[in-house]
Write a protein that binds this DNA or RNA. Sequence first.
DNA 1: GCTAATATCGAG
DNA 2: CTCGATATTAGC
Length: 343
Amino acid sequence: MEVRMENIGNLHTVSHSHQTDNLMNSPHTRQSVSHRNLHGRSATMVSSMASILDGAGEYRSEHSLSAPLPPAMTMSCDSGMSISSTYTTLSPLQHLPSISTVPEKFSHHHYPHPHHAHHHPAHQRLTAGNVSGSFTLMRDDRGLASMGNLYAHYPKDISCMAQPLSPLSSGLGTLHDAQQPLGAYGPGAHLSNDKMISPGGFETHAAMLGRGDFGGHGTGLMSTLNGLHHPGHSQLHSSGSMLSERDRHEAGGTQACGSSQAEEINTKEVAQRITAELKRYSIPQAIFAQRILSRSQGTLSDLLRNPKPWSKLKSGRETFRRMWKWLQEPEFQRMSALRLAGV
DNA sequence: GCTAATATCGAG
DNA sequence: CTCGATATTAGC
């Protein structure tokens, strides 16, 4: 286990140093911390991904997390499919004690999922400890501070914003959220070198940052961010998909708030996003199909190319829900999912 | 030329 | 719907 985690941790590690340290109690944690400086290792990422795919290690962040945490957290972690309903429900509950109570260290709201993201700092901390801390933390450093504020204001609304996909957004709307979101943060700031370096690689960090935090959801946010972004990154996305340009607007009408699954999924959009993500991380359809969807490569290919409208789907909805769910997961979680599925 | 990945398509 | 075989394509 450790090995894997370490890798992961390193990858994400952000340039800045701060809170992360505090959070992590676990031994591993430290390691990651030390490495954090390395941002630029897209390569690393890749390799790690690869290994994951292979199914080499086996730790599943999800489970571990779930145990300790409250229901809300659990669901997010579990990734099971049943969650969906829960999702919605939970959102409201989540705001517990929270942020105010906790000191900055804990408060990093890095959380990937918009839904729970904001609250329970305390838990996070736990999570980190129990699980693997390493990765969990990394993502938050990045821009979330600002986020915190936002969240505070909108306890539950956020969820809505967060959801990138909108059932409605027909087709392409959303695909790219992940991709360019963060450029905004400023490369120089934390990532300094890395990003530039990783042209071919993936903008892993970027992605992480983006989606992890608020990524492409909130329109307002996004726009702001976008404005900031600098030149260097453009390359990053190049590899993946370029649908982006127009997509960004999508946000305007996001409607589905708690849509984890109960709601309709815009199959077209999901298909495109999945396709883009697979490309980005060089994840073969066969692997994804098999591990995440429990389907064959041919099936996935067909679904991605010819997604049927949600309304016309019957049992096939389950498959799309899985894809959708996967899209919503944070980087490390996706990775682990890929890896453990194989196990 | 070989291999891996993806697309296509018939069958259950 | 999904599988599984096969054709096609892309990369080395």
